[in-house]
Structures are given as structure tokens and as C-alpha cells.
């Protein structure tokens, strides 16, 4: 399901890998098998099976409470699962300890509420993980950090504290912070849901650029325009299940399930 013709050059994030070659034999980057999760009595993830290839952009849609954020958060184990398997790049997700930390270092995560470190400057937010987790020399990390901040258009704010920035700027810093770890995969958990409407586009543009450069992405979002234009596949969830997986043009024009039709009619015609 890889988008043909996508540029695989990755100016800033050259970590992975020959595995994104066009051979088609490469194993999926993310595999979820028979994943189940409960919050108390609530069955939030039911029989989740999903594979995401390297270089693919998957957008997860669904009504609120459908389990899409939880699905996203299980992939770097911010949420544990009750049963089933999740593997990343062929290896199962470690339960805890240094193995899990190493894996998380390779999976970027962007949160709805940005979660920038409130006591650190914008630049320090971007450099702290490369310095402390990857033992990158400070100088090198700061050069990388400034390049990334430039790329997301907030280099002029580098010395400020996060709270001094607008929501859109904060979210772009958060994306730069994740990219600084040169991840194989980026998870976006409703990255624009906390933003004022006029700031949504600046974040969507950064995400679109990333996708164009070949970053593997799983994005939970309500931005239908992004899903339509950028996704390779749309995953539609309801009540903890994946109801539909389809390329965006098919999903938006001819959804199969009644639930998806209902969902689309509500969000597209109001």
C-alpha cells in the first residue's frame, strides 16, 4: 500500500533504512495482531489487526471514544494492552526497562496538548533528548535543533519558554522535538485538536511536508483535508473496532460501513 512516486529523500531524518526500498518484500514497520484492551469494563480496543509499512501515512478516523487515541498510544506503550502482539520493525514491544526506552526513542509522538517541557526553552526542548538519551554532544544537538526549528518555522523563538508561543508554534516545536530523535515512525495523537482554527494549517503543512519526505506516520486527526490529500490509507474506528481500512478517495466517496457513512455525513455536511 505504499504510495508510489513519494519522494524518499529525508533531509533531516536520515535514520531508516534500506528497508524502504521498493522491493515490496520488506516487513511492515508496525504490526498489531489481535490487540485487546479494557479500561475497567470498557472494551476500548477489540481485535485490532493493523500493519503499517515503512513510508506509509495512515490516518485514523472515528467518533470520539472510538479508541483511536488509545490505539495510537499503545504503539509506544504509553498504554499497555491486555492481549495480542505489537511489533515494531519486526521486534515485539518490550514490556518495560531500557529496551522499551530504546524503542520509544525511535518512535516520535506528538500530543494533542503539545506537552512541551514547561521549564525549558524551545531550543532545550528540542535538544534535551538527543543530549541525554543519545549522548549527542551539545553543540551538535544545538545545530540539529536549530535546523529543525528553522524547518518548522520557529527558529526565531528558540530562546523563549513554550508558554510564550502560540499553540500552533508550540505544536511545531513539539514536532521538531520528536524529529530530533530521528525516529523511524511518527505518531500524531490529535495534533490539531487543541488549536485555534487559524493555527491548524501551519501544523498540517509541517505534517504534509514530513509525509512527502517519506516519514512513516500514524495520525489520529479530524482534519479530513489532510486525510484526503496525504494519507495512503484511512483507518475508520468505532467502539474499539477497526471497521474499515481503505485508500482515502474510496473511503470518502464510497464508505462501506453504515457507521462510516453516518460519521462522514455528520462531519462533511454541517
Amino acid at each position: 500500500m505504499r504510495a508510489a512516486g513519494r519522494a524518499y529523500g529525508r533531509a533531516m531524518t536520515q535514520t531508516t533504512s534500506a528497508s524502504r526500498s521498493e522491493s515490496g518484500t520488506a516487513p511492515p514497520l508496525v504490526t498489531m495482531r489481535e490487540v485487546q484492551k479494557h479500561f475497567g469494563d470498557l472494551h476500548v480496543l477489540r481485535d485490532i489487526d493493523l500493519e503499517v509499512d515503512a513510508g506509509e501515512v495512515v490516518v485514523v478516523l472515528g467518533p470520539s471514544g472510538s479508541g483511536k487515541s488509545t490505539l495510537c498510544r499503545t504503539i509506544n506503550r504509553l498504554e499497555t494492552i491486555d492481549s495480542g502482539d505489537i511489533t515494531i520493525d519486526g521486534s515485539p514491544l518490550p514490556a518495560s526497562g531500557p529496551g522499551l526506552a530504546r524503542l520509544r526513542a525511535e518512535v516520535g509522538m506528538v500530543f494533542q496538548s503539545f506537552n512541551l517541557f514547561a521549564h525549558k526553552s524551545v531550543l532545550d526542548n528540542v535538544t534535551v533528548a538527543p543530549i541525554k538519551v543519545k549522548r549527542m554532544p551539545r553543540r551538535e544537538a544545538e545545530e540539529l535543533g536549530m535546523r529543525l526549528l528553522e524547518r518548522v518555522g520557529v527558529a526565531d523563538q528558540a530562546q523563549k519558554l513554550p508558554a510564550q508561543l502560540s499553540g500552533g508554534q508550540q505544536q511545531r516545536v513539539a514536532i521538531a522535538r520528536s524529529l530530533a530523535m530521528q525516529p523511524k515512525l511518527m505518531l500524531f495523537d490529535e495534533p490539531t485538536s487543541a488549536l485555534d482554527p487559524e493555527m491548524i494549517n501551519e501544523v498540517i503543512e509541517v505534517m504534509t511536508d514530513l509525509a512527502r519526505e517519506g516519514m512513516t506516520m500514524i495520525a489520529v486527526t479530524h482534519e479530513m483535508g489532510f486525510a484526503r490529500r496525504t494519507a495512503d490509507r484511512v483507518v475508520f474506528m468505532d467502539a474499539g473496532r477497526i471497521l474499515e481500512v481503505a485508500p482515502p478517495d474510496r473511503f470518502f466517496t464510497a464508505p462501506e460501513s453504515e457507521r462510516a457513512k453516518d460519521f462522514l455525513s455528520k462531519i462533511l455536511h454541517h
Binding site: L78, M109, S113, R177, M181
Partner: peptide, 18 residues
């Protein structure tokens, strides 16, 4: 301290001590 702060740190690969 907001839970998201620790979650962001974990998602960047920091250990509990870091």
C-alpha cells in the same frame, strides 16, 4: 506536574531516572 510532561519524556526514550 501535568501527566503529559512525563509522557512526553517517556515517549522520547528517557528512563525513569532521567
Amino acid at each position: 506536574v501535568a501527566v503529559g510532561q512525563a509522557e512526553a519524556a517517556r515517549s522520547l526514550g528517557m528512563s525513569f531516572g532521567q
